[in-house]
Design a protein around this nucleic acid. Structure first.
Lengths: 104, 104
DNA sequence: TAGCCATATAGCAAATATACTATATTGATA
DNA sequence: TATCAATATAGTATATTTGCTATATGGCTA
């Protein structure tokens, strides 16, 4: 079953420049990031380290931002070896856009 | 010329329960509010007083919320007699939805 | 023009969000 | 199993948001 959508939660998650940047960067992992050794950029997502770097904040701050996005359902974490990779949940995002189009 | 869209600003404006309520209520002014004497519910919008009441906050707080929505371009104020009426800017909202669909 | 009513602003308190440093946790690997 | 590297959490400082009360503004209307 698909995750249920909390519009307010999703909007709060998106209403931040750093998190919008992450969402944008993850749209094109291959274009925005170098190949990774332990996780596939597309299948698994982008290593939190590279996202942290792009956000330009300290590691714990970035971790928090990624948590917020994941909590809202917008991105999916995948743990592999030592790392956590994040990718967009396109199905959820699509459903969210639809709900925004209908409700807003 | 159409207003330019600041997605982050719009998302911040929408990411609040009171303001989401206002946006929802203004979708159906005739269904959600009683007829007004000095302003047409549809043409002019809903008197800030009724919106304040529905939000369940003090007048200055409501005034602030409505400002935030108006600043983001989501609603349009119309001053008439003593009052300010607010209606949705459907053209802007439509353009915003489109931009969200494309960019997000 | 004087007063009044709706709205906006000022000023402040409390809650939440964003950031940091320091440290704990966790899991891979030597 | 001991260590180390990546990530998460704790703890704290600051900024922003949300709310209030008190007051200013601005423009109808008598």
């Amino acid at each position: 079953m698909a995750k249920s959508i909390d519009i307010e939660k999703a909007l709060k998650a998106l209403a931040n420049d750093k998190r919008l940047l992450v969402m944008a960067l993850l749209k094109d992992p291959l274009g925005n990031f170098l190949p990774q050794v332990d996780g596939d950029l597309v299948e698994d997502g982008v290593c939190s380290n590279w996202l942290t770097e792009k956000m330009g904040v300290a590691q714990p701050t970035a971790s928090r931002h990624l948590q917020v996005l994941a909590d809202a359902g917008l991105i999916i974490p995948t743990r592999k070896k030592g790392w956590v990779f994040y990718r967009r949940d396109e199905a959820f995002i699509c459903a969210l856009k639809k709900k925004i189009s209908e409700d807003m």
